[in-house]
Design a protein around this nucleic acid. Structure first.
Lengths: 240, 240
DNA sequence: GAGCATTTGTCCGTATGTATT
DNA sequence: CAATACATACGGACAAATGCT
């Protein structure tokens, strides 16, 4: 019995592609089926196994490609910046504003930001890419007082962290973070160009002024699990 | 066209089983195929979709059953105890010692524990269950000085946190945690009774004496993603 | 824009293997 | 040993997305 054919094939393919640079095109289902002398079902199961392990990414009509997950390190010791974190991990980040409006602060947000419900707050919705892959989407609630002209600022810089530092004059630091893995709902799946139900991280985070401890912004962000490996570091010591 | 049949079926089934108590037997593939008027392939794909989303668990020869994931909250504000965390979540925890030996401290562990390489350290390997499901496995490195008689102590109490408190006389607190989701390797899959490649959490954590900050133990633990929903929390403020 | 080849996505029917009860 | 139900696999078919002509 040993194991199933598709598992052996998956293991063989995994070893083959291990050293290939990300984005390399690999054999299609039919080619694999022919090479290993199996039907398309077994070949397909093998490639799907690799996909579940985030080793390849598949695009209909195009093919199967080697993939890599970029580490996204969330730590209280480092600035809460998508751009900077991704760049340090060796990827090319990009962020696009979907909407940026001033709204009355909802009750839940007000509680977290420790401000009066109904006072104006920026509601910034953005989508972030890593190497041209839509990898993150979510909402950032920024205290209006911290950055008076956010809509203008986000047109100049892609980094909210940078904006708050330069325009707002505060250094944001992660105060608390909560991360879990969920199945993508319709809306999230749509924004991230994945199938509904695919695994995504949900990261909620409060950033405060490093100096005064005053709340600056609240972020709620979904992150594609197949593109990003979220690593959360809690605590003060260096993990090495 | 709208979407695939199996997705519609999966969505319909998900809604049906949402309120069922965990462990309830649900329709098999053939029953679903008959009910929705599709082939077995589509029915199977639908159930597999539910399985990927951790809504059901399947056992060959037995059937498909509703599942629940227990929340495992890892936070710097709460004691690093499997037993206590799981119990609070309403599950029945159990921990079994696989091995407990005194070994010379490896270099990597020594660096994390800030001790001399080669000094004696307890190497404790344990497997933890939630409701009789093997859900976690890993190694704990405990400074020998903190608990002189660990092999005896682990026979009395299942909670390492409790042992260190009572026998060692220190209150352990999470100093830092590093968690990510990986595909299970052979060894881990074997210990957790899952297929190799299935999604598992890998959690590495350093616990220190709450009072003095001195390192007490280093843990490396794999956790079944289909059984446990890991939630990471970092920071001082109340998340509400 | 239309047409075509490629490749993955979905689905069918059928068959056999294997674990549990 | 038999019944049940999931696991794997085959071959075939059409749909849908992509890139190119």
């Amino acid at each position: 019995m040993a194991s199933a054919k598709y598992r052996d094939i998956a293991a063989a393919l995994a070893a083959e592609i291990a050293d290939l640079p990300p984005g390399t095109k690999v054999d299609g289902e039919l080619a694999i089926a022919a090479r290993f002398g199996v039907g398309r079902a077994a070949a397909r199961a093998a490639v799907q196994e690799l996909e579940r392990q985030f080793l390849v990414r598949r695009v209909r009509g195009l093919g199967t490609f080697t993939s890599r997950r970029v580490d996204y390190l969330i730590s209280s010791r480092r600035p809460p910046s998508w751009s900077q974190t991704l760049r340090e991990a060796g990827a090319t980040p990009r962020t696009v504003v979907r909407s940026c409006t001033s709204v009355p602060m909802p009750a839940e947000v007000a509680r977290k930001l420790r401000m009066q419900e109904g006072t104006p707050v920026w509601r910034l919705q953005r989508r972030s890419f890593t190497d041209d892959l839509p990898a993150s989407w979510g909402t950032e609630w920024v205290a209006a007082a911290a950055v008076p002209e956010l809509p203008t600022a986000v047109r100049v810089s892609e980094s909210l962290d940078h904006i708050i530092r330069t325009v707002g004059g505060v250094v944001p630091a992660r105060s608390w973070v909560r991360a879990s893995m969920e199945a993508a709902c319709e809306e999230v799946a749509d924004e991230l160009a994945i199938d509904p139900g695919a695994p995504v991280w949900f990261v909620k985070s409060l950033n405060t002024d490093e100096a005064t401890g005053a709340p600056v912004c609240l972020t709620e962000r979904w992150i594609r699990a197949d593109a990003i490996r979220v690593v959360l570091e809690a605590g003060e010591d260096a993990p090495g």
